[in-house]
Simulated scan of single mutants.
Amino acid sequence: MTDKEKEKAETKRKAEELLRSHFKGENEITDEKLIDIINEIKKDKPLNNLFEKFKKSYKFFVDFDDNGEKTEKNFFRYFKISSPSELNINPEEITSKYSPLEMFLISILWKQGDFGKEQRILDGIKKNEIIPTVFPQFGRFLKTLSDENHNDEPNYENIEPIIDQHSLRAFCFSKDIEYNEGRDPSYDVYDKYIKCYKSVIRNCKCEDKELCFLMLNEIMFILGKALKK
């Protein structure tokens, strides 16, 4: 076994240990527990690399000042959808309807081979039902996020979790559910994940529910990615 393979195996072992110790049962999530998990992640170099990468991307959602206080430049607080129809991309109107920034973002979708996949996200936004694949679930997250942002006091239990292959892998491991790599999970697995996630948010003893919501998404992604064979 090479040094790189040994490091990967040790990181996988560490991720399994964290999931067993913190997510196997129905223990309450507290500020202290979340901090403990993050501190353990930081001790492992590959896990910490994922954490730092994830943290940079999450600045789009929430950022902190020098004192560790959340700033008001918070995407979560301002994301609102007036009507799903306004999100449709019409290729025939590219030159007349869209701003330079919108055209730039559309070009990235096209370059990545993802142009057209936004319709799958719209399916999740428009339909009030579980569609057990990543993009529609992300649409459900955006829709429920927008709905709560119309309230003065958002209820984070009502916001759908962000689910991908990594977070599902972590969840299935922690609950002893079979996870089949490369295959879309069943409706039942998605339903269990969502119910469990919302239960954690509802019962968590964190003072800042928004930060709890963000950190749980982050932790499940990082640990699930480390479990990948």
Results as ranks from 00 to 15, higher is better:
V134K: 13
Y156C: 04
Y190Q: 02
L122H: 04
F171L: 10
I130R: 00
L109Y: 05
I131F: 01
E153S: 15
R183E: 10
C196K: 08
N88F: 13
F171V: 07
P132D: 13
E207D: 15
Y98F: 14
C204F: 04
Q165V: 11
F115D: 02
S99Q: 09
E157V: 14
N158H: 12
I89N: 02
F173L: 05
E118T: 06
V189R: 00
R169V: 04
G182M: 09
I131G: 00
F104D: 08
S199C: 03
L101T: 13
L105G: 03
H150D: 11
P100Q: 09
K175R: 15
S146N: 05
D152N: 07
S167G: 05
K209S: 12
F115K: 02
K111S: 11
L168G: 00
I131Y: 00
R183N: 12
E207C: 07
W110A: 15
I177A: 06
F171I: 04
E93V: 09
E157S: 14
C206D: 01
F135D: 13
Q165A: 12
N149T: 13
R202I: 01
N155W: 11
I162S: 01
T133W: 04
S174K: 00
E157W: 06
D188C: 01
D152F: 08
K205Q: 15
R169H: 13
N158Y: 01
K209Q: 11
E178G: 00
T133V: 08
R140H: 10
K175S: 12
S146K: 10
K195E: 10
N149A: 11
K143F: 07
I121T: 11
I131L: 07
K97Y: 07
N155D: 13
R169K: 08
I194A: 02
G124M: 03
K195V: 12
W110L: 09
P154Y: 06
K205V: 03
T133P: 01
L109I: 04
I177K: 04
E181Q: 07
G116Q: 07
Q112R: 14
K175G: 08
D164W: 02
I159K: 01
Y156F: 14
E181K: 13
I163V: 13
K192S: 15
F173C: 03
Q119D: 15
S146Y: 02
I89F: 15
T144M: 04
C172D: 11
K192H: 07
D188W: 03
H166A: 10
P185Q: 15
V134N: 05
G182D: 09
D152T: 12
N90V: 12
I159S: 00
A170Q: 01
L87H: 09
K117P: 05
Q119F: 14
N128C: 05
H150T: 14
E92N: 12
P91D: 11
K111I: 15
S107R: 15
L168F: 02
C172I: 08
Y179I: 08
G182P: 01
P154C: 06
Q112G: 06
I159L: 05
K192D: 11
D188H: 09
K127N: 12
V189P: 00
